[in-house]
């Protein structure tokens, strides 16, 4: 987590609008497909879950693991991405 990825930068640089879930940092094709299959097709849906879990890192990572078998790196990236976006735009 020392360096911020390009994906994270891209995502946190602007409002998310209708971006697909795969635009989230840490969510690639595979995880994106799994999330979509559960109804989390847009990034804002994941944001909703993120907010419902009160921005709690532990819970969110647990949920990511539960929902799409994300590993800790992926879920941590995703959490980081969303929390930074929230700091910026929420």
């Amino acid at each position: 987590m020392s360096t911020t990825s390009q994906k994270l930068k891209n995502f946190t640089s602007e409002p998310m609008g209708d971006k697909p879930v795969t635009d989230l940092a840490g969510v690639g094709e595979v995880l994106g497909r799994r999330l979509e299959s559960q109804g989390f097709d847009k990034a804002y849906v994941v944001l909703g879950q993120f907010l419902v879990l009160k921005k709690n890192r532990e819970l969110f990572q647990d949920w990511m693991k539960e929902a799409c078998q994300a590993n800790s790196k992926q879920s941590s990236d995703c959490f980081q991405c969303l929390s930074e976006w929230c700091e910026e735009f929420l």
């Binding site: 879950q49 419902v52 879990l53 009160k54 819970l59 949920w63 539960e66 929902a67």
Partner: peptide, 17 residues
């Protein structure tokens, strides 16, 4: 534990917690 709302998607997490 300062619990977030328990919804359909979070319920399992909360149970585990």
């Amino acid at each position: 534990f300062e619990a977030p709302p328990v919804t359909g998607t979070t319920r399992k997490l909360m149970e585990k917690k």
